[in-house]
Design a protein around this nucleic acid. Structure first.
Lengths: 153, 153
DNA sequence: CTAGGAACTTCAAGTACTTGAAGTCAAAGG
DNA sequence: CCTTTGACTTCAAGTACTTGAAGTTCCTAG
């Protein structure tokens, strides 16, 4: 029995809705070769996405969501098509991504502390508590000092 | 204006870390007039941010984070909406920023889990453990769904 | 069948940064 | 004192989309 039964197809708008990427980005990714050329309608020139296309686009959407660059996405997709033999390079790419994310997490935590301190500061100012406002302003300055020192061991 | 002397100053790197905008973006915003020219060091030509500058940059960072366009931010500045303002307004703006940062922290954590899982997957593939690879691929797929949902609200 | 509108197409230009090159300045080590 | 290291500077070019214009094509309704 053939597994190649008539599959469902999708318009670019449907593909966009299902993957979360705008249609313009789908066309752009195809134009620069991040995703393979999508087949077109017999009479029209409209893109027609099959299930396989959609899987590929979904995969690329996930990579883009991790903040991966276009260049790395191209490599990653190329390696994926080459099979498990490229596991080493996949691990390298992802380890780099892991390090970027760890840094990003640290930076977000720092900003959270700063913003929390600033909110306290303005609350104290609003309440006319000059002493507390001054104390919190000083803490914010010290946070910046820690930041300066953090870069060097 | 405060009669307090501006005791503490910040480098562009510190201002970037505290507001979450890259140093390159700070320079860019200044060059196109979204933020006022920042004073420079006496001998060096390096930018020196005081507390007031930092509050202003923080405000712009909040506006940018809400998705406001450059053009609208410029208008906002031109209308005198930006600058020394009431405490309550600052608190409102910063509370919004706090909520966005909490979301951002969640998203980064989710991405970290996704990438870690993918690394495990490729390690399993590299080691020839197909059963584990398939298990991890399935887990990653489920996590990718969460990741896709997280990017939207 | 045919008119109208929504949705698709390409391509060029615009947006909002980002990166790289080349140079300046300033504290730290020899 | 000198040199190296590194953070900062400007400016031009690059990146990753996004939008707009102008022209098909699909679909639905009269």
């Amino acid at each position: 029995m053939s597994t190649r039964t008539a599959q469902h197809t999708y318009t670019i708008k449907e593909a966009a809705a299902l993957t979360g990427l705008p249609a313009s980005t789908l066309r752009y990714y195809e134009s620069i070769g991040v995703i393979a050329p999508v087949s077109r309608g017999a009479s029209s020139r409209h893109r027609v996405y099959d299930e396989e296309d959609l899987d590929q686009v979904m995969w690329v959407a996930c990579l883009a969501a991790t903040g991966m660059s276009i260049g790395d996405m191209k490599k990653y997709v190329a390696n994926g098509q080459l099979g498990p033999s490229a596991a080493r390079e996949q691990i390298e790419l992802l380890t780099g991504q892991q390090q970027r994310l760890a840094l990003e997490a640290d930076h977000v935590a720092l900003r959270q502390r700063y913003v929390a301190l600033k909110i306290d500061f303005w609350n104290a100012t609003d309440a006319g508590d000059e002493a507390r406002a001054e104390l919190l302003a000083d803490k914010a300055r010290k946070l910046a000092d820690d930041l300066k020192r953090a870069g060097k061991p």
